[in-house]
Design a protein around this nucleic acid. Structure first.
Length: 551
RNA sequence: UGUCCGAUAGUAUAAGGGUAGUACAACGGUUUUUGGUACCGUUUGUCUUGGUUCGAAUCCAGGUCGGACAACCA
């Protein structure tokens, strides 16, 4: 019974630190920059950071890494908080790197006083060329050896707004010959006369990421600062600042970020899709954003399960979208109510049904323990059925309707096709059947066995809805690694809108809190823009398809 | 040409010197009033060359391949 789940490398590290006493209380943080919406890749990091402290005790802070006022907005702060909460995680403290601007400024002054930082008036281009290349050492700036007093005065005038943007920067004095480019006197403060979403106009100098992140971790006593692989080379700098400043030694650990097939994950690219109106917004149901997935009908549980299954490691990875789809199907299979909707209708007329109409009862979910309760489904002699459920000349192993064939109408009777009509273009318009009265669902005494069951909606009782069928956003597995512009690989069929689908009447009471399975068609959820007058359903994911007709 | 990180089925992820396992995918079957679900089964793997060892995915050395690093972004 003790099937102990293997630990990922970060859990191993933490268990060691806990056992050795190096870590007393585990403290992690999730540190988004509020310059975009969170996506499924962030969800992986969120699940990791919050999951770790849930598992081992301790707590997780939410800290906005807001050191670049020109790209950051309160709108993003709000959306990011909403997404994390929706996933079901609670942060201990809501913090901002900007809370530490005073302390960070003090750290910079200390570095100057210790002869470890200097004000550089070189231009950006000069700094770039002086930096050398990975195989070639950098050269010192002409301003590298200014006196401490001069640096202090200059930094003060930077802070006091006496200099325009770009006039100079504050640089750490480390090692221009380091094989690690980040150690070649990195810029730690730059002048930006910009309005900050929280500090307003209090500052005109802002710390760089490398001078803010580690120190913020340290201020918060973060024990394990977990980030993605691209920060590996920053770790040396991270440790250097902490050591020179003599502050709490937070430690940084890196794992491989999530990549998903048929999508892109960089905030820059997602922003492009939004800005160029290639999607309807950050929460477009085709977007890999948390808000997009939510609108698409994904549940928090399914996303967390996905993050659990993909694992944590240091090797680059590209996860197949089918795994995400598996996770949402698995979850929705347990909870979604089954209903009937016809997306591409043709009429089915039952010629021997003389009762006019009757009310049938259907279980909402055969997979749920209580069957999800029941609902009433009106039945009559004229129904809408799916165009694809009738074949004039049936394929091999065809279980659905065809001339002479019998099928079960879900929750209702067995019918046999007697005739059909076509329009001048050869499209089927009507299918005629006779029904077998004693084959009623639940009280079938006909003794007839049919292979196929199809869904339907009573024509006179049907309601209508707009149904949006979503598919993968890109038509290639890895848009990032294709030649040219990633936008050239957008899937032109990523959204198909069915403006008038027929739905069973019970769906007028649909809510956004519940997923629905349109029987045999897939899982759907009510869109946030849906109104009682104009119902809108989004296809979350199709059902797994096991059969495709072969000529 | 430098430094750092990595390499296990199609995709992910375990095995921490002793039988290469799990999930998704694919394929086949049983059940089924959803061609869904559930259940059963099948196929497919340790980058390479040496070394250490009774024994190597695991330890060591070389190679190969992939990724990261030269923003006043994070």
């Amino acid at each position: 019974m003790s099937e102990e789940k293997s630990l990922n490398f970060i859990e191993e590290l933490i268990e060691n630190d806990l056992q050795s006493g190096k870590t007393k209380t585990l403290v992690t943080r999730f540190p988004p920059e509020p310059n975009g919406y969170l996506h499924i890749g962030h969800a992986k990091a969120i699940c990791l950071n919050f999951g770790l402290t849930q598992k081992y005790g301790g707590y997780t802070n939410l800290r906005f890494d807001d050191t670049n006022p020109v790209t950051e907005k309160t709108e993003y702060v709000n959306s990011q908080q909403e997404d994390i909460s929706w996933l079901g995680f609670e942060w201990k403290n809501e913090l901002y790197a900007s809370d530490y601007f005073d302390q960070l400024h003090g750290f910079a002054v200390k570095l100057i006083e210790d002869g470890l930082a200097y004000v550089d008036h070189s231009t950006a281009e000069e700094i770039a060329t002086q930096k050398g290349t990975p195989t070639e050492a950098g050269k010192p700036s002409a301003y590298r050896d200014r006196s401490i007093a001069e640096n202090l005065a200059l930094f003060a005038s930077m802070k006091n707004g006496e200099l325009p943007d770009g006039a100079c920067t504050l640089r750490a004095k480390i090692d221009l010959a380091s094989p690690n480019m980040l150690m070649r006197d990195p810029i730690i403060y730059r002048i930006k006369h910009a309005h900050h979403h929280r500090t307003g106009d209090a500052w005109c100098i802002y710390p760089m990421y490398d001078f803010a992140h580690g120190q913020s971790d340290s201020i918060e006593n973060i024990t394990h600062s977990i980030c993605t692989l691209e920060y590996v080379s920053h770790r040396e700098l991270y440790d250097w600042f902490i050591e020179k400043l003599g502050i709490f030694p937070s430690k940084q650990y890196e794992f491989a970020r999530l990549n998903l097939t048929y999508t892109v994950m960089s905030k820059r690219k997602l922003m492009q899709l939004v800005n160029e109106n290639l999607v309807s917004g950050w929460d477009d149901p085709r977007m890999p954003t948390i808000s997009g997935l939510r609108r698409r009908g994904y549940t928090p549980e399914s996303i967390k399960e996905f993050c659990e299954r993909i694992g944590i490691a240091k090797r680059e990875n590209l996860i197949e979208l089918s795994l995400l789809e598996f996770c949402i199907r698995e979850d929705l299979n347990k909870r979604a109510h089954r209903v009937m909707a016809v997306l591409d209708p043709i009429k089915l007329i039952i010629t021997n049904y003389t009762k006019g109409e009757e009310t049938l009862i259907g279980e909402n979910n055969p997979e749920a323990e209580d069957k999800g309760g029941t609902r009433e489904i009106p039945f009559s002699n004229e129904l809408w059925i799916e165009r694809e459920d009738f074949m004039e000349e049936p394929a091999k192993k065809w279980f659905r309707l065809a001339p002479g064939a019998t099928v079960r109408l879900k929750h209702a009777y067995i019918v046999q096709c007697t005739d059909y009509k076509k329009d001048e273009n050869g499209n089927i318009t009507e299918v005629y059947c006779t029904y077998i009265p004693e084959s009623k669902s639940g009280e079938d005494t006909s003794g007839i066995n049919v292979k196929g069951t199809i869904h339907w909606v009573s024509a006179q009782h049907a309601k209508t809805a707009e149904v949006r069928l979503y598919d993968r956003l890109f038509s290639v597995e890895s848009p990032d690694s294709e030649e040219g512009d990633f936008k050239d690989y957008l899937n032109p069929n990523s959204m198909e809108v069915i403006s008038k689908a027929y739905i069973e009447p019970s769906l007028v009471n649909a809510t956004q809190n519940l997923g629905y399975q349109f029987i045999r068609k897939g899982y759907f959820s009510l869109d946030k823009d849906s109104t009682p007058e104009n119902l809108i359903f989004n296809r979350t994911v199709g059902l797994k398809e096991a059969w495709k007709p072969k000529s």
